[in-house]
Design a protein around this nucleic acid. Structure first.
Lengths: 204, 204
DNA sequence: ATCTTTGTTAACCAAATGGTTAAACCATAA
DNA sequence: TTATGGTTTAACCATTTGGTTAACAAAGAT
């Protein structure tokens, strides 16, 4: 039933299927049988390749985060100005997430369920840190490029504005009375609207 | 085990316990036995008063949303200027959520699990609509009080900035290397930081 | 006092679920 | 051809879980 089975090998098929099911239903809601059905194989194979539901889930989770991490690095560790980073990140991130709509909610939800998972993703090679971004904000404020603002708060603001609509999609669609198409259009507009909104606020 | 059992009656005790468990673990992760234990009663009582897990869950869910709805009405249907509403809402909402930290994530998560629940909460008497807010933004833009901005985008921005940190708490705590106390302080600062950020962006 | 309704419990049940096993399958190297 | 090793399957198992039942207690109602 899986649409995009790039992998011919069983192990990859399982991971693909597990991604679909876990990201839609979460650890608690997912069923091993459903993953097996989606992969078109016997349930015992899941255990043959991944031992347990927990381990299969962890494979999916770290995999998911390693997709997201490089996106965050673009705003945190790129060399351009804050203004340019905001513009680029907003544009790129919304494009990226439109292709992986379940990703942010999945990660946030499972991190809420078990905050210790954060340690697991921290081991990721590309794990992003805030340091550079914070000093850069301080510098640009001192140089008079930006209005005074705390780097941490700005970081939270940027990711809030970009990520939240994709986490709370049903809520937004409900309040704004949008169907799938309308929501997509609105997110398309946000590529510019959000960066304008941020730049308007911080640029001197 | 429940800390705040204001209700002496069994039915209320069950609802309190169910709120605790459902909001922390979600529909799929919650166990009827755990709710019974938390309420200090027999599991059969849950079914005696609420028939099924599904119905008990729905009672908790609509209850939770009816706490949140009046908060949203403050920004959508209050009579003050946009600037004042932003300031008030930001301040009040962050205070409110600090007392109910599981609320926004619970609602968002369960709405993702089953988007049809939106119809259920729409029947709520105090259900907020966007109409007034949108026309008010258009008016203030025309009067030259605000820079040109779309009302819907502004609404999304406001709730994103206010809600997201409470939905993605473990992520924020991880990136910013904060403990509980540090996170609380940061949210306290946001009461002013967020409204400044928004007002800076939209005020002419 | 006794009947009736409501509340409460322990024991029980059927279905679902994660996980295991033993046998079969199959490619490949000797 | 036939061992050999990894791969796959159907059947099975133990536990968990939402839900039920029948007996019992408490409290009004008559």
């Amino acid at each position: 039933m899986a649409k995009t089975n790039k992998n011919k090998d069983t192990e990859g098929q399982i991971l693909n299927a597990a991604e679909n099911v876990f990201q839609k239903k979460g650890m608690d809601g997912a069923r091993m049988q459903e993953i097996a059905d989606e992969a078109g194989i016997n349930k015992a194979m899941l255990h043959y390749y991944y031992r347990s539901k927990q381990l299969l889930f962890e494979a999916v989770f770290t995999n998911a985060f390693s997709l997201l991490a490089p996106q965050l690095n673009k705003i945190l560790n790129d060399d351009s100005s804050i203004e340019d980073k905001v513009k680029n990140f907003t544009h790129n991130y919304i494009s990226f997430i439109s292709k992986h709509p379940y990703l942010p909610n999945f990660i946030i939800q499972e991190l809420n369920r078990n905050p210790k998972f954060f340690e697991k993703i921290q081991q990721n090679a590309a794990f992003p840190t805030l340091e550079k971004f914070k000093t850069q904000v301080t510098e640009e404020v001192e140089k008079g490029i930006l209005k005074p603002i705390d780097g941490e708060q700005l970081f939270i603001n940027i990711i809030s504005l970009n990520i939240f609509p994709f986490v709370a999609t049903p809520l937004i669609k409900g309040f704004l009375k949008l169907d799938d198409k309308g929501f997509k259009q609105l997110m398309e507009q946000r590529k510019i609207a959000v960066s304008e909104f941020i730049v308007n606020s911080i640029k001197k």
